[in-house]
Design a protein around this nucleic acid. Structure first.
Length: 652
RNA sequence: GGCGAUGUAGCUCAGCUGGUUAGAGCGCACGGCUCAUAUCCGUGGUGUCCGGGGUUCAAGUCCCUGCAUCGCCA
């Protein structure tokens, strides 16, 4: 199967920012994913370089439009490698072959009678580059630019868009996936419920010369739509290119919601007028709202792709934007959020999983992936295999629907499962017992194999990190040109593969250092340190204050009943009078039989936070003295009181 | 003004055609482990499911209405 996917061509009146980066990362990820599915993929991006605003910007800089667009276009092209974006073709609307194609198509559509000449007059706003309607004016001025528009009477060429309105409505209704997510499809249909006007597609050369001349009237240049949208055809060699048919039949466009109308309405009708088949799908995404108060100072107000990559790393940036945004909806971008994703999802969950797993293969299996021992495989391995298979199919489905956040969620579910698998099976325990060798090998094999599949599916999302994972797994050269269908199945890793504990795949980031504008890595402090700090507070130098002691509510308790807790060697369930009746679970079963406890008066902590032990809720604890007997075994003697006293009496 | 979307735990959000005690991740608290990047595992939620009506044996899920936010259109 072929895949042809495009980003919009970016207008070069401004430098690349987060929005451009997102669209392009999404398209790159999708193209890598389709390649992983075995497709022959064509991925195109580019720049839109004609128009009045370009001329204005060039004039401002005192350079020619040509020099200006060369400079900005180069900035865009320099950005993509920094984001690990690998497009197959970069088109510029100033390319000679594009200019030629646009003119050919204009002539063709003109000859067919779908372009006509007409005169009209109206309020033209320079800033908007368009005519405004009476209703749009506020106090006679353009609401966006606060300037009174000029009264212009102008003759121009128009594209007979209205002619194709009914066809377009039918086509969208008949193809639910033509425009997705659905909200945008509805928006378009809603817009189409009103009569379409024809589209003005020219500018007189008296007003604009930086454009493609109309082939049938040298006094005009084409304006925006034919010039820009046709790039999707030029880039794959329309009309005679050998690959044109192959790729055009499967064309998919990725855009942000601000250019929905041109892509969902103008473009299909233009294509129809040319006599071509419609593109296959249009994928529309939302905006990134940048929370400036939560941004790193070094990045500032405008989020520049290069600075993002320099600050957080390309993998973190790609993972973040794909994981955080529900495709189609707006999301917010903040330093805190990206750091949280990096530290939690990438460093803790994924990076640490790789680290711990491969370290164990190195330690316990001399660094070679051991063979699984079929006789020691159990339900845990069955669950793993099952989870991996489910993940791969879910991943594929979601990626195809541009639901990247869901695809990644599915992967992380498996990562969580693997971390649990390690704890449950404790290879470090297995390694202590030679009799468990088979079991150990099975666990290590399963981990290695699962990591291989995870690496495979993360390739499209984080190409750089995935390459490091491949190396760590000793699979250099073996993960290229493989397909998801084959390589995504269990059992692909070769026994004996030499792995290496990876260098830190995902470094932890320090939120505070980043906020201050430093690109320093995290000083590894945080949670546990704080936890231990707290513990210290209580037992600083081994002494507690009287106040601290006063927090313990110690009381005399009378044991009313005692019974063993099933499946536990050490726990007894006690019913005590304190003076109210309570249940306390005590770890004294090895030292006292239930019978001998009944009636005893013991000292209990009455205000201990309730806890569940072996499923039995315990409201307090009884105190006992602990020592080691002559046989080396632990001995426990319950604390009690020297005389008879009422249950519930305070001990202090 | 018209049309539409959204409003669910401290934060970000899942909850399909109405049906067990409303979920996930993060954060937070406590406990456990020690292979690991001070990581991992376990336990912990009295959430007015925006407010108010209604339909139903049963509504976060359907209908009406109000409020808030947003989008498209005029």
């Amino acid at each position: 199967m072929p895949t042809y996917v495009t980003t919009p061509i970016y207008y070069v009146n401004a430098m690349p920012h987060l929005g451009h980066a997102y669209t392009t990362i999404v398209t790159d990820t999708y193209s890598r994913f389709r390649r992983l599915c075995g497709d022959e993929v064509r991925f195109q991006t580019g720049t839109d370089e004609h128009g009045e605003k370009i001329v204005e910007a060039a004039v401002k800089e005192g350079v020619s439009p040509r020099a200006y667009v060369d400079r900005i276009s180069a900035a865009f092209q320099a950005t993509w490698p920094q984001l690990s974006v690998a497009q197959d073709y970069t088109i510029r609307t100033t390319d000679p072959d594009h200019v030629q194609t646009v003119q050919d198509i204009l002539q063709q559509v003109y000859d067919n009678g779908d372009i006509y000449f007409s005169e009209y007059s109206g309020h033209y706003c320079q800033g908007c580059e368009r005519f405004l309607t009476e209703k749009e004016l506020v106090d006679g001025k353009c609401p966006d630019h606060q300037v009174a528009p000029k009264e212009i009477s102008e003759q121009n060429y128009f594209f007979r868009m209205s002619k194709y309105q009914d066809w377009l409505i039918d086509h969208i209704k008949a193809n639910p996936e033509y425009i997705t997510p659905e909200r945008y499809r509805n928006e378009v249909l809603s817009f189409l419920s009103e009569p379409l006007e024809d589209l003005c597609i020219s500018r007189p050369t008296s007003r604009l010369t930086w454009g493609i001349p109309l082939p049938f009237d040298e006094n005009f240049v084409t304006y925006v739509w034919f010039d820009a949208l046709i790039n999707y055809l030029t880039g794959i060699g329309y009309p005679d290119g050998s690959d044109f048919e192959k790729y055009w039949s499967v064309a998919e466009h990725v855009i942000a919601k601000d250019i929905l109308k041109p892509h969902a309405i103008y473009w299909p009708t233009m294509i129809k007028a040319m006599g071509l088949s419609p593109y296959r799908r249009l994928h529309v995404h939302g905006y990134w709202n940048v929370d400036e108060t939560k941004m790193s100072k070094s990045i500032g107000n405008v989020v520049r792709p290069k600075e993002l990559v320099d600050t957080y790393g390309v993998d973190a940036v790609r993972y973040f934007v794909l994981r955080e945004m529900s495709f189609g909806l707006d999301s917010s971008f903040s330093s805190d959020a990206i750091v949280a994703r990096q530290n939690s999802d990438l460093a803790n969950d994924l990076g640490n999983l790789f680290s711990r797993s491969l370290t164990m293969v190195v330690k316990y299996a001399a660094g070679k992936v051991p063979a699984a021992d079929p006789t020691s495989e159990g339900p845990a391995e069955a669950e793993l295999k099952n989870a991996l298979a489910t993940m791969v199919s879910g991943y594929e489905e979601h990626m195809n629907r541009f639901e990247f956040h869901r695809a990644l969620q599915a992967v992380w579910e498996v990562i969580g499962l693997l971390n649990r698998y390690i704890v449950t099976n404790a290879p470090w325990e297995l390694a202590k017992d030679p009799a468990q060798e088979g079991r150990l090998q099975t666990v290590l094999y399963s981990l290695s194999e699962a990591l291989r599949i995870i690496t495979l599916v993360l390739g499209p999302v984080m190409p750089e990190a995935a390459a490091k994972m491949v190396t760590a797994l000793g699979l250099d050269g073996r993960m290229e040109n493989v397909t998801l269908a084959e390589a995504g199945a269990w059992g692909g890793i070769q026994v004996g593969t030499q792995v290496a504990a990876p260098q830190q795949l995902f470094p932890r980031l320090d939120k505070k250092a980043l906020a201050a504008g430093s690109t320093q890595q995290a000083a590894p402090v945080k949670k546990k340190a704080r936890k231990e700090e707290k513990k210290k507070e209580i037992s600083q130098d081994g002494l507690v204050s009287f106040e601290q002691f006063g927090k313990f509510d110690l009381r005399v308790a009378e044991i009313l009943a005692a019974e063993k807790i099933a499946k536990s060697d050490r726990l007894l369930k006690l019913t005590v009078l304190l003076p109210e009746e309570r249940t306390i679970v005590a770890g004294i079963a090895e030292h006292y039989s239930p019978e001998e406890l009944v009636g005893k008066l013991v000292i209990a902590v009455a205000n201990l936070k309730p806890a569940k032990l072996m499923g039995v809720p315990s409201q307090g604890m009884v105190l006992a003295a602990k020592t080691t007997g002559e046989d080396g075994r632990e001995q426990l003697i319950l604390s009690t009181v020297a005389g008879s006293i009422a249950p519930g009496s305070k001990v202090a």
